[in-house]
């Protein structure tokens, strides 16, 4: 574990973040004193029991939801609104069903000459392996392909940070494995800072440089585990299993 703030490559600094929701049954504390550092260019996974507030944390980091107290700073600047520099990738793709693949990927690019836009869009269509599908509509694509469009759309605006909120949750098991490899390849090529929220411990251990484990609600970060296993990783490796077991142990899950 690293000491907070000791790393000069810190991209996102989360300090004593609390988040409460007002509901009919009164105040619910979702995040309680969360401290976390995300390093520039790393792949960080956040795991925790479902409903623990890890998605809420991600939404706060993206600027979609205000925090109740504490601070979230990215490159030293307090987050107060969403920005194109930090793009959110949704579980059920947030691509727009009424736009073609081309229009979806160009969606965030703003006003620019057609040639320039076309060049960027086509570059990212190639990056995610969807050549030939630029005129297709999302309803004509499989779940995995839609997720690729979502990745391409996010990457096309050249963000520093990608927020991945269980991006493979809606996919079938085989496609999920394929997309894990795909996101690793894309991450390897672009070296964006990636923050993955998942309840799938194996997914977290396979993908991430570090795994932050959260406690049940009110959630806080219990510990951050380093994961130096060389890639590509296999769930059969002894070290892989050991790390997985360690995460399960912190989560308080007894297995077998």
């Amino acid at each position: 574990m690293t000491e907070l703030g000791s790393d000069t490559r810190t991209k996102i600094a989360i300090r004593e973040v609390c988040k409460t929701f007002e509901t009919k049954k009164g105040r619910v504390v979702v995040l309680d004193q969360v401290d976390l550092d995300v390093r520039s260019g790393e792949f960080l996974a956040i795991v925790g029991p479902s409903g623990c507030g890890k998605s809420t944390l991600l939404n706060c980091m993206a600027g979609f939801e205000p925090i109740t107290s504490g601070s979230i700073r990215i490159d030293g600047v307090e987050v107060d609104a969403p920005s194109r520099k930090r793009v959110f990738v949704f579980q059920e793709p947030g691509i727009l069903p009424w736009f073609s693949v081309w229009d979806n990927i160009g969606f965030g690019l703003g006003k620019m000459p057609f040639e320039q836009k076309h060049e960027i869009v086509m570059r990212y269509i190639r990056l995610v392996g969807l050549d030939g599908f630029e005129k297709s509509f999302p309803s004509e694509l499989s779940g995995g392909m839609k997720q690729r469009v979502e990745f391409a759309r996010a990457l096309a605006v050249q963000p520093d940070v990608l927020y991945l909120d269980e991006p493979f949750g809606a996919l079938d098991a085989l496609t999920r494995l394929e997309m894990r490899a795909e996101i690793l390849r894309i991450w390897g090529e672009t070296r964006k800072t990636c923050i993955l929220v998942t309840h799938d411990v194996e997914e977290a251990v396979e993908l991430a440089d570090r795994v932050a484990v959260m406690t049940p609600r009110p959630a806080t970060v219990h510990s951050v585990l380093d994961n130096d296993l060389p890639r590509p990783r296999s769930a059969d490796q002894r070290e892989f299993r050991a790390l997985k077991d360690r995460v399960f142990e912190i989560l308080g899950v007894r297995r077998g």
Binding site: A62, F64, P82, S83, R84, R86, V87, F88, F90, E92, G94, L96, F107, G108, G110, R153, V157
Partner: peptide
């Protein structure tokens, strides 16, 4: 809300 959020995310 996903559509609205992602639009805001992209500055639309």
């Amino acid at each position: 809300q996903k559509y609205i959020r992602s639009a805001r995310n992209f500055g639309v």
